Amino acid sequence: MQPRLSICIATLNRGAYIGETLDTIVGQLRDDVELVIVDGASKDDTQVVVGRYVAADARVSYVRLPKASGVDQDYDLAVSHARGEYCWLMTDDDLLKPGAVDRVLAALDGNVELVIVNTEVRTIDFGGTLRGALVAKQDDVEYAPADADRLLVDTAHALSFIGCVVILRSFWIARDRAAYYGSLFVHVGVIFQSRTPRTRVIAKPLITIRYGNAMWTPRGFEIWMFKWPSLVWSFAGVSEAAKARICAREPWRQPQKLLLYRSIGGYARGEYDRYLAACPMTTTKRLLSRTIAWMPPRFANALSSLYCGLFARHARMNIYDLSRSPHATFVARAVARSAGY
């Protein structure tokens, strides 16, 4: 029998986390739901951990690749191995809430091509809440193909997290995926490259994100200053006004962004030389971007933390990042404590 749903996980060196994730999934599997795990040649004990679940449940399958091919291609491979009508592109270190699979299955009515599963964002130890929901909707909502602007504006920040995507497998296969290998957001490229899918958003959060544990965290400057904006601004079927509400075309031109990354250790002389030195900018902008890159990181951290504490207490994820930075000051820790974590 063809499964109704395939939960697809791409993983790499997550032996310390993936067991906790699988514990929240396997207990929710049904006869019409399978779990497909593609391992990009992990060098830790991921294979051993996953092997226990494969041996215990025939609905769990495991594919180990001979070498790493990148997260985008690994998710694409997971979908190619899946047999389900729909594929849920789940992550390898976050948690499903009880009843999540049944709730998603109830949303797959045969007409929808994409379901976006709302998520809550918690600290790395799950002890504190950073965002109650990434999609700010109280009730389920639907989007037609003509609603591309509204879909992007309402869901792009949630879609930066791949685990919220449940997509019709035939829709995925029919789209260009290879063009987005290396973007780190192949799923977003699949959704917005041309006619957007008929979409349903489940308003109630069904996933708990372990914030700050992403494999790409050390590459944050490159990703959020260049890769993500380049992807968002490449979509021809979305208006420039809608794109601008998600991110600036060139956010690296914004001094406050550079200061934040300097504060958390993601921007320094190396990043300036690699990414910004050759970028065209005014003399004033160049001097400012160089000055921030040369600024003592603890001073930048204290300055950013003070600003967040006085004027941006709603920026909980930024406050959390500042407090966990290797350059964190007593100001950062005090602001984080006052925010509840």
Results as ranks from 00 to 15, higher is better:
Ser6Pro: 02
Asn13Ala: 04
Arg14Thr: 06
Arg14Val: 00
Gly15Glu: 04
Ala16Trp: 13
Ile18Tyr: 07
Thr21Asn: 01
Asp23Cys: 03
Thr24Ser: 08
Thr24Pro: 05
Leu29Tyr: 04
Leu29Lys: 01
Val36Gln: 00
Val38Gly: 01
Gly40Ser: 12
Ala41Met: 12
Ser42Ile: 00
Asp44Tyr: 05
Asp45Val: 07
Thr46Gly: 03
Thr46Ser: 08
Gln47Cys: 14
Tyr53Met: 02
Ala55Pro: 09
Ala56Ile: 12
Asp57Ala: 10
Ala58Tyr: 14
Tyr62Ser: 06
Asp72Pro: 10
Tyr86Gly: 01
Cys87Trp: 06
Asp92His: 00
Asp94Leu: 06
Asp94Ile: 04
Asp94His: 05
Lys97Cys: 15
Val101Ile: 08
Arg103Ala: 15
Ala107Trp: 07
Val115Trp: 04
Thr119Cys: 15
Thr123Glu: 08
Ile124Phe: 15
Ala133Pro: 10
Ala136Glu: 11
Ala136Asp: 14
Lys137Asp: 11
Asp140Gln: 09
Val141Gln: 12
Ala144Thr: 13
Asp147Ser: 10
Ala156Leu: 09
Ala156Cys: 13
Ala158Gly: 14
Gly163Pro: 06
Gly163His: 03
Cys164Tyr: 05
Phe171Leu: 09
Trp172Ile: 03
Ala174His: 05
Asp176Gln: 05
Arg177Val: 04
Ser183Ile: 03
Ser183Asn: 08
His187Trp: 06
Ile191Trp: 10
Ile191His: 08
Gln193Ala: 09
Gln193Ser: 11
Gln193Phe: 11
Pro197Arg: 08
Arg198Phe: 12
Val201Asp: 02
Ile202Arg: 01
Pro205Met: 06
Ile209Thr: 08
Gly212Glu: 01
Asn213Met: 15
Asn213Val: 14
Phe221Gln: 00
Ile223Thr: 09
Trp224Tyr: 11
Met225Gly: 02
Ser230Tyr: 05
Gly237Ser: 13
Ile246Ala: 10
Glu250Asn: 12
Glu250Gln: 12
Leu258Ala: 01
Leu258Tyr: 00
Leu259Ser: 04
Tyr261Gly: 00
Ile264His: 02
Gly265Asn: 03
Glu271His: 11
Asp273Ser: 14
Thr282Met: 11
Thr283Asp: 15
Thr284Ser: 12
Thr284Asp: 15
Lys285Leu: 13
Ala293Val: 03
Met295Ser: 08
Asn301Ile: 10
Ala302His: 05
Leu306Thr: 14
Leu310Asp: 08
Ala315Thr: 09
Met317Ala: 12
Tyr320Ile: 06
Asp321Leu: 13
Phe330Val: 13
Ser338Met: 15
Ser338Val: 13
Gly340Lys: 07
